[in-house]
Amino acid sequence: MPPTDASTDAGTAPAPVTDDGADPGPGPDADADSEETLELRLPDEFIALFADEARAHVEGTAEEGNTRATVSGTPAADDLLDRVGDWGPTTTPVGGFHLVPVRLQRDLPLIARWMNDPAVAAFWELAGPKSATEDHLSAQLGGDGRSVPCLGVLDGTPMSYWEIYRADLDPLARHYPARPHDTGIHLLIGDVANRGRGFGSALLRSVADLVFDKRPSCARCVAEPDLRNTPSVSAFLSAGFRFSAEVGLPAKRAALMVRDRALRDVL
């Protein structure tokens, strides 16, 4: 676990944004769990290091992309998600935001800490030793690029974890009428201080817009919050998603939420 300044949150903690993509509301034993949740501030040294590495990543990937385009005479080759790492920062109603692909050695302690928050663990089920989170991340990082784990950096501070994935190539596609290039979004907001402040809806809308801007072949963003998670479904609706169907997934009954490119300026 990274060194932090910790203080006990003695009150009722706001519900986190989870893999369902938004505030999940209290789950089982929520009252007990909220008293055990720590509100932990990221150390200044970590934030500074992360900012330096993020800038280096952006500069390095831009230079690499230019070199490849020059050598081949064509634009740099796409991966399955149109090079999420090259999408760059975007402006949101809550501040400047940047999806930065996870680097295991740098980011594992922080993400594992978030996964051990009881309110998060209830949905992600990755609480316990860092190895559980490491295995989850490594499966994506070592895969074919159909799912890209990212840190969400708001105004220079890592504050959320995202998975941008090809829903049409995911097991989810077995449970709904998938279309080519459907792009899925998973999200959790890490620390208690950032929850319950409207970040979930604002960032979901902005990231979906970013997907449409950077993935011209994608006509829909999708997500699958737990059907019982009324606050999560509500947040997606506020972010311009619509309820499409109830689907039975192996671990839950889910609300299939869809945001359509054609309706992005309407909803």
Results as ranks from 00 to 15, higher is better:
Thr8Asn: 13
Ala139Trp: 14
Ala251Ser: 10
Thr8Val: 15
Leu237His: 03
Met115Lys: 08
Pro231Phe: 05
Arg68Gln: 09
Leu154Lys: 04
Asp44Ser: 14
Ala32Tyr: 07
Asp144Arg: 12
Met159Trp: 02
Thr157Asn: 14
Thr4Lys: 13
Glu45Ala: 15
Asp20Ser: 07
Ser217Asn: 15
Leu80Asn: 00
Asp260Cys: 14
Asp78Ile: 05
Val222Pro: 00
Phe241Asn: 01
Glu63Ala: 15
Pro109Val: 11
Gly190Asp: 04
Val71Trp: 08
Trp87Pro: 04
Lys130Trp: 09
Val120Thr: 06
Val58Ala: 14
Asp213Glu: 14
Leu38Ser: 11
Pro250Lys: 02
Ala193Trp: 04
Gly145Tyr: 01
Ala122Asn: 12
Phe46Thr: 06
Ala167Tyr: 00
Pro28Thr: 14
Asp135Ile: 08
Asp82Gln: 09
Ala202Glu: 15
Leu187Ala: 02
Gly240Val: 04
Glu35Phe: 10
Pro177Gly: 15
Arg264Leu: 08
Ile164Thr: 01
Val148Asp: 01
Arg253Phe: 12
Thr90Glu: 14
Val102Pro: 01
Leu249Asn: 06
Lys252Gly: 04
Ala127Leu: 03
Pro180Ser: 09
Ala173Glu: 07
Met115Tyr: 08
Cys150His: 03
Cys150Asn: 00
Gly95Asp: 07
Gly143Met: 07
Ala54Leu: 07
Asp209Phe: 03
Leu40Trp: 03
Gly95Val: 03
Leu110His: 08
Arg259Tyr: 03
Ala77Gln: 14
Pro109Phe: 04
Pro225Phe: 01
Val17Pro: 06
Asp31Phe: 03
Ala13Trp: 02
Asp209Ala: 12
Met1Phe: 02
Leu188Asn: 01
Val94Cys: 08
Pro43Arg: 07
Arg113Ser: 03
Ser234His: 09
Ser131Val: 12
Val153Cys: 09
Phe236Val: 07
Leu227Asp: 07
Ala15Arg: 00
Pro2Val: 11
Lys130Val: 08
Asp9Tyr: 15
Pro231Cys: 05
Ala13Ile: 06
Arg242Ile: 06
Gly143Lys: 05
Ala54Thr: 13
Ala69Asn: 08
Thr18Val: 00
Phe199Tyr: 12
Ser147His: 01
Asp82Leu: 13
Ala235Asn: 02
Gly11Asn: 14
His186Lys: 02
Glu36Asp: 10
Ala56Pro: 09
Phe46Leu: 13
Pro26Asp: 08
Leu172Trp: 03
Val102Arg: 07
Asp209Ser: 09
Pro231Lys: 07
Leu99Gln: 03
Gly145Arg: 00
Pro101Asn: 05
Asp9Trp: 15
Pro3His: 05
Leu187Tyr: 06
His57Arg: 13
Val71Tyr: 02
Pro171Arg: 13
Glu35Tyr: 10
Trp162Ile: 01
Val233Asp: 00
Val222Arg: 05
Leu263Val: 08
Leu38Ile: 10
His57Glu: 15
Gln140Tyr: 03
Thr133Arg: 02
Val233Gly: 00
Glu246Gln: 14
Ile164Tyr: 01
Ala119Gly: 09
Arg166Gly: 01
Pro101Ala: 03
Ser238Ile: 05
Gly11Pro: 13
Ser131Asp: 15
Ser138Thr: 15
Asp23Tyr: 13
Arg41Gly: 07
Pro129Ala: 07
Glu63Tyr: 13
Ala10Glu: 15
Ser234Glu: 11
Pro16Asn: 06
Thr18Ala: 05
Leu38Thr: 03
Ala132Gly: 13
Pro158Met: 06
Ala10Pro: 12
Gly95Trp: 01
Cys221Leu: 08
Glu134Tyr: 11
Gly152Asp: 12
Pro26Gly: 00
Ala54His: 03
Leu172Glu: 01
